[in-house]
Amino acid sequence: MRIALKLLCSAIAITLAAPVMADTAPAAPVSGAPVYAVVARIPGADGGWDYAAVDPVRGRLYVARTDAVMAVDLASGKVTDHFAPATRAHAALPIDQGRTLLETDGTSGLTRFIDADSGKTLAEVATGKKPDAAFVDHATGLVVVMNPGSNSVALIDPKTHALVRAIAVPGGLEAGEGDGHGHAWVNLEEANALAEIDLKAGTLVRTVALDGCDGPTGLALIGGATRVLSACSNGVVTVVDTASGKLVQTLAVGAGPDAVIVDGPRGLAFVPSGQAGTLSAISIADPAHLRVVATIPTQKGARTGAVDPRTGILYLPTATMVPAANGTDRPRPAPGSFVVLVVAPKPVN
Rank of each mutant, 00 (worst) to 15 (best):
3 I>L: 12
5 L>M: 11
6 K>T: 06
8 L>A: 08
9 C>S: 14
10 S>C: 03
12 I>T: 13
13 A>N: 15
24 T>L: 00
32 G>S: 06
38 V>W: 07
38 V>N: 04
41 R>G: 02
45 A>E: 14
49 W>D: 04
54 V>H: 11
55 D>H: 11
59 G>F: 02
59 G>H: 01
59 G>P: 03
68 A>T: 09
70 M>A: 06
77 G>C: 10
80 T>I: 10
106 G>V: 07
110 L>A: 10
112 R>P: 02
114 I>L: 05
117 D>G: 07
128 G>T: 04
129 K>H: 06
130 K>T: 14
131 P>H: 04
134 A>C: 06
150 S>V: 04
152 S>G: 11
156 I>C: 07
179 D>I: 08
195 A>N: 10
203 T>G: 00
204 L>A: 10
214 D>T: 14
219 L>G: 09
226 T>D: 11
227 R>Y: 04
228 V>W: 06
229 L>I: 09
235 G>S: 05
238 T>V: 09
253 V>Y: 05
260 V>A: 02
261 I>Q: 07
262 V>Q: 05
262 V>Y: 05
265 P>N: 07
270 F>H: 14
274 G>E: 11
277 G>W: 08
279 L>H: 06
286 D>P: 08
286 D>S: 13
301 G>W: 04
302 A>Y: 07
303 R>P: 00
306 A>S: 08
306 A>H: 07
314 L>V: 07
318 T>N: 10
330 R>D: 12
330 R>W: 10
331 P>N: 12
